[in-house]
Structures are given as structure tokens and as C-alpha cells.
């Protein structure tokens, strides 16, 4: 008898997110960087043409990476490979799925392709991650089929302040929901502009129905542990590793910082002698139109 198999179910999508918990997902632009990330203990890599810091610097329209780069990175490592598509660009997503990418990031770091609609992520076999700044945005993305949420933070700055703001906001809104009486759920859903059944789920369980990771500005082991202590279940590190002086050592230290996020003695040991972190940007020096986080709705 042959085995009846079901692919692309919600359980398989969220299941892969669960498998990535307590890990670090690192941005890489070459097979060599991907290897360094894997050797350091990354749970997955994000295959990119340019890291966010360079996208910010160089400007222009940022699009899905060349499939050639993504395929070479997929060949180089055995861990899951993620890649980014522009918000609303479902054809870029179709291409990544055809390439066999393990996870798609519908990302504000790239230039949006649709200013009204995000991708219908239920239509795909491969799981999606999306950024969010608050609970309503997170639940709208989950309603569209995102199997993982990450804070948006402010990518490419090496400054954790926005990721902290977004994580605190989401956690505070979740806490507030847990005490909400049933008759107030409808009005709150309307206020959050989120599906009522998801709002009720969060009220009943006290967490998001999919893992909630941190991203956008994490540059040091202490930043990673901070996000974990604030309630993140894993971290994405973008420019923070390969824009630093010693990427391999920094990558290893951030992996350990996520595993031992609540143990200051370990954090103190692993934070030593890592060389210069990426330089970073003060958020207040950025103009409103330079912010990536306000892309997506």
C-alpha cells in the first residue's frame, strides 16, 4: 500500500516555525556566508542579494534576490533557507516556492509591489513570515496565512529600539486582551482591524497562534537576549552579523545568547572580545520616508 500524504497543511507550516524556536535566523548574501552561519549554529539563513543596511544605503527599488544566488545558498547548507519577496508580489512568491525555498518572508525591507493587498498566503504550500508593529497587524497577517510573525523593528540600523517598541506593544496588547469579557471581543476586533476569531483565540491562550520572533536592528548577544526576555521566541539578525568586524565569532555568540537568554553569567562570558559591532544608526536621524517599518498595513 502506498502512503497517503498531505502537503502544505497549516500544521506543517506552523510546525516548521515551532522547529525554529530558540534559534537565530541570519541574513546571508553568498554561499560562504551561509556556511559561516550554519557552522556558527544558525537555525536557518535568509538568502539575500543585499543586506538591509546596504539596501538602505544604495536606495532604488529592492526586489526578490536573483534565483541564482538563492540556489547557490540552498546548495551550500543543510539548514532551512528563507528568502524575501516584496509585499503583495505573489509572483515572486510563486518563483521562490518553485525554487524550493523553505520559508518566504513577505518583507517591508523590499520595496512594496502592492500598497493595498498583501499576498494570500493560504494559497501556497510553503510557509510565510511577515513583520508586524502591533497586535492588529500581526493578526491581519496571520489571517492571510502567515505561519510566523516577527517584529518589524527598523531593519539595517543596528539599533534595537524599534524592535523593543514593537515587541512591547504586541505583548502589552496580548496581556490586555486576556482579561476582555466576551461581549467586548467584537468591538476590540474592530478596533484592532483583525479577524474576530483570532482575537478570541489570543484572549483565550494569552499568546499569538503562531510563533512570534524578533527582527530589525539586533546587533549584539545582549540585544538578542533582551528580545528573548521581552517574549520573542527566536531572533532574526540581518546586517548585524556580516556588517561586524568578526562575523563568525559574533554569530556563535548570538546563537548562545538566544539559548541562554535568561542566564547573565553565560551572557557575560560570550559577550567578551567579539570585535566591533556594526556601526548603527540613530532612529531619530532618519526621515519619516526613510523608515521601512511603515511599509505594509
Amino acid at each position: 500500500m502506498t502512503t497517503r500524504k498531505e502537503h502544505g497543511t497549516w500544521r506543517l507550516k506552523v510546525g516548521l516555525s515551532e522547529m525554529l524556536r530558540g534559534g537565530v535566523i541570519m541574513d546571508v548574501t553568498t554561499p560562504e556566508q551561509a556556511k559561516i552561519a550554519e557552522d556558527a549554529g544558525a537555525v536557518a539563513v535568509m538568502a539575500l542579494e543585499r543586506v538591509p543596511a546596504d539596501i538602505r544605503k544604495e536606495g532604488g527599488v529592492a526586489r526578490m534576490a536573483d534565483p541564482e544566488i538563492i540556489l547557490r545558498i540552498m546548495d551550500a547548507v543543510s539548514i532551512p533557507v528563507m528568502a524575501k519577496v516584496r509585499i503583495g508580489h505573489f509572483v515572486e512568491a510563486q518563483i521562490l516556492e518553485a525554487l524550493g525555498v523553505d520559508f518566504i518572508d513577505e518583507s517591508e525591507v523590499l520595496t512594496p509591489a502592492d500598497e493595498e493587498h498583501h499576498i494570500d498566503k493560504h494559497a501556497f504550500t510553503v510557509p510565510f513570515v511577515c513583520g508586524a508593529r502591533d497586535l492588529g497587524e500581526a493578526l491581519r497577517r496571520i489571517g492571510e496565512g502567515a505561519a510566523m510573525i516577527r517584529t518589524k523593528g527598523e531593519a539595517g540600523t543596528g539599533n534595537v529600539v524599534e524592535a523593543v517598541r514593537h515587541m512591547r506593544k504586541i505583548q502589552a496588547q496580548i496581556r490586555e486582551l486576556t482579561t476582555l469579557p466576551e461581549e467586548e471581543v467584537y468591538a476590540r476586533a474592530k478596533e484592532l482591524r483583525a479577524p474576530v476569531e483570532l482575537v478570541r483565540w489570543v484572549r483565550d491562550h494569552g499568546r499569538l497562534p503562531v510563533p512570534n520572533f524578533a527582527a530589525g536592528g539586533i546587533a549584539t548577544p545582549a540585544d538578542a537576549a533582551l528580545m528573548m526576555q521581552l517574549g520573542a521566541e527566536s531572533v532574526f539578525v540581518g546586517s548585524g552579523i556580516f556588517k561586524s568586524e568578526n562575523p563568525a565569532a559574533r554569530a556563535r555568540a548570538i546563537v548562545e545568547a538566544v539559548a541562554y537568554y535568561d542566564q547573565p553569567d553565560v551572557l557575560a562570558r560570550i559577550s567578551r572580545g567579539l570585535g566591533e559591532p556594526m556601526k548603527g544608526l540613530d532612529i531619530h536621524e532618519l526621515e519619516e520616508q526613510e523608515l521601512l517599518q511603515s511599509r505594509g498595513w
Binding site: 502512503t3 497517503r4 500524504k5 498531505e6 502537503h7 502544505g8 497543511t9 500544521r11 506543517l12 510546525g15 516548521l16 543543510s78 532551512p80 516556492e97 524550493g100 525555498v101 523553505d102 520559508f103 504550500t125 510553503v126 510557509p127
Partner: peptide, 15 residues
Amino acid sequence: RRNAWGRQKESFEAP
């Protein structure tokens, strides 16, 4: 053998 069924799109549920 690791990842022997293939990548995520080959992940499956089966009895």
C-alpha cells in the same frame, strides 16, 4: 539520513 524527504514543500502529514 537527514532531510531525506526533501525540503519544506515535501513535508507531509500521514497516518
